Simulated scan of single mutants.
Amino acid sequence: MGLKGKLIGSIEVKCGGHSIHDIIHTNPHHIPNIAPNVLNHFEIHEGETIKVGSIVSWKFNQGGNEILFKDVVESVDLEKKSITWKVIGGNMLELYNSFIVITSSEHQWTTVTLQYEKKTEDTPEPLTLLGVLLNGLKDIESHLLKK
């Protein structure tokens, strides 16, 4: 059994993938208000916005448990509407040696990719987390469609 894995989930969004990317890239501090059942907290620790080198933290709800990510933004591709976040702290690193989250959007689709290395073969695949992140994207879409 391999310890490295990749999970990819995509959802079709009526508001356009570019709109989802714009919220994540330029207004991530609004996401806890947009998706309070998914995201409890967002904070920028270093940097002013989501730029390469910015350090941010997120607190998610997963089945009644709080998941904390502290990330450094590794890359932002405005043309491809993609952001790569490397987890550098938080309780996700209790189960995984490395964890990267990639958000990308194109046309009517938004995609979340999780790349990870489990500490042991018994560590579960982060399927529930992928579902939580996709639900957050659906909440962002609903918010944008109300406007």
Results as ranks from 00 to 15, higher is better:
Thr113Val: 15
Glu66Ile: 15
His30Pro: 03
Leu144Tyr: 14
Lys14Glu: 12
Lys81Trp: 11
Lys147Glu: 13
Asp71Thr: 13
Ile102Gly: 12
Lys14Thr: 07
Asp22Leu: 04
Gln115Lys: 14
Ser10Cys: 00
Leu78Asn: 12
Glu12Met: 03
Glu125Lys: 07
Ile8Cys: 05
Thr128His: 08
Asn65Trp: 13
Asn97Cys: 13
Ser105Phe: 12
Ile11Glu: 03
Leu7Ser: 04
Leu145Pro: 09
Val132Cys: 00
Lys4Ile: 00
Thr123Val: 15
Thr84Asp: 08
Glu66Lys: 13
His29Val: 07
Lys59Val: 10
Lys14Val: 07
Ile23Cys: 05
Lys70Tyr: 08
Ile8Phe: 03
Asn61Asp: 02
Thr123Trp: 15
Lys118Met: 01
Thr120Arg: 08
Phe42Val: 04
Val101Asn: 02
Val73Asp: 05
Thr84Ser: 08
Lys147Gln: 14
Glu48Gln: 12
Phe60Arg: 00
Thr111Asn: 13
Asp139Phe: 01
Leu127His: 00
Leu145Asn: 11
Glu66Cys: 14
Val73Pro: 03
Cys15Phe: 03
Leu39Gly: 03
Ile50Asn: 02
Glu46Arg: 08
Lys119Gly: 08
Leu95Ser: 10
Ile140Gly: 07
Thr113Met: 12
Asp22Lys: 05
Gln115Phe: 10
Val38Leu: 02
Glu141Met: 06
Lys119Trp: 05
Leu68Phe: 11
Val76His: 10
Pro124Lys: 01
Ile8Thr: 07
His25Pro: 03
Ser75Leu: 05
Val72Gly: 06
Asn27Met: 08
Leu134Asn: 01
